[in-house]
């Protein structure tokens, strides 16, 4: 897992946002994705495009169903679990440590 670091220039300093992501390697993180999706999982690897490899992921998809007759919006939440997930970087909006609630 940590081998990913080999591709990252040798630096311990937090100088740019992506360095913060590096600190979260092998930690649980929270990822917000386009399309009302959220992921919680262990960050195994990432790159400059924010492509991510996550482990033990719980994916949360928020769906809004519009009732055609009444125009009522019904919000549904679908959850999915994956052992391992590759996330393409172009969908990533936000990466953060999980909120310690």
């Amino acid at each position: 897992m940590a081998d990913i670091n080999a591709t990252i220039p040798d630096s311990g300093a937090v100088e740019e946002p992506i360095d913060l992501v590096r600190l979260s390697l092998d930690e649980r993180i929270y990822v917000k994705l386009r399309g009302d999706r959220e992921l919680r999982g262990v960050l195994h690897a990432f790159d400059g495009h924010m492509n991510l490899v996550l482990g033990e992921v719980e994916e949360t998809i928020t769906l809004v169903d519009v009732n055609e007759d009444t125009n009522e919006e019904v919000i549904r939440i679908v959850k999915r679990n994956s052992d391992m997930l590759f996330v393409r970087g172009d969908g990533v909006i936000l990466v953060s440590p999980p909120s310690r609630a």
Binding site: A2, N5, S11, G12, E27
Partner: peptide
């Protein structure tokens, strides 16, 4: 915690360097 993580990352760099 963040500092700890940084420490660990630094160490990883060193270790990887060593392994290389």
């Amino acid at each position: 915690r963040k500092k700890v993580l940084r420490l660990v990352e630094d160490l990883y760099m060193s270790v990887l360097n060593l392994e290389q």
